[in-house]
Computed example of a mutant assay.
Amino acid sequence: MKIAVYPGSFDPITKGHLDIIERGAKIFDKLIVAVLVNVDKNGLFDYAERVNLIKKATMYLDNVEVECFRGLLVDFMKEKHSNVILKGLRAMSDFEYEFQMALMNKNLNSEIETFFMMTNAEYSFLSSSAVKQVAKFGGCIDGLVPESIKSIVVEKIQEGDVKHV
């Protein structure tokens, strides 16, 4: 069974993330969406909320699992019996950072391979930060986040509740 891990902060999950998840789920037997716990960042959603939002947005995909992890990605992957990292790329600026991370992960575990997937052009501008910014100022986020979680995202941003996680 070929298992891939798609890591990220997903704060919140966007249509761009969902596009990568859907396409990855067609390629791999199992895709684990791994929400990274980063103690140095403040998030809009806490980690349990992020996991629940992703589960809600991907519930129709039978081979997708969603988990939270702390520590090194390569350690999480070993625990999950995976040697493939799936990463979505929007632009060359993403590639530079992700290429460095791929080399670091390969250095930490030579069995790890990183699979880069270009985002669909319609999502090339999209990020979680942009979604939060648009919603914060009352802009429409239709088509930016999965429809199943849109009202939750809008409500959370209107609360102005940024978690320290």
Rank of each mutant, 00 (worst) to 15 (best):
K2A: 01
Y6G: 01
D11E: 10
P12R: 15
T14S: 13
T14A: 09
T14Q: 10
K15F: 07
K15D: 14
G16L: 03
H17A: 01
L18W: 12
L18V: 04
I21K: 08
R23V: 06
K26A: 10
I32D: 02
V33K: 11
V39Q: 10
V39N: 10
D40A: 14
K41C: 03
F45M: 12
D46Y: 03
E49P: 04
V51S: 08
V51Q: 13
K55W: 07
K56R: 15
K56A: 14
K56C: 13
N63C: 08
V66D: 13
V66I: 06
V66T: 03
E67D: 01
F69R: 14
R70F: 03
V74Y: 00
D75I: 11
H81N: 13
S82C: 05
S82Q: 06
N83A: 11
N83C: 10
I85T: 06
I85C: 02
L86D: 08
K87R: 15
G88F: 04
R90V: 00
A91T: 09
S93R: 09
F95N: 10
E96Q: 04
Y97G: 07
E98R: 06
F99S: 05
N105S: 02
N109A: 13
S110H: 05
M118Q: 06
T119L: 15
A121N: 10
E122I: 02
F125E: 00
F125Y: 10
S127T: 07
A130D: 05
A130R: 13
V134A: 04
A135Y: 01
G138H: 11
C140E: 14
G143A: 10
G143V: 07
L144K: 08
E147A: 11
S148W: 04
S148N: 03
S151H: 09
S151T: 15
S151C: 09
S151Q: 13
V154E: 15
K156F: 09
K156M: 07
K156L: 11
Q158I: 04
Q158V: 02
D161S: 08
D161G: 06
D161Q: 09
V162M: 11
V162I: 15
K163Q: 15
K163I: 11
V165C: 12
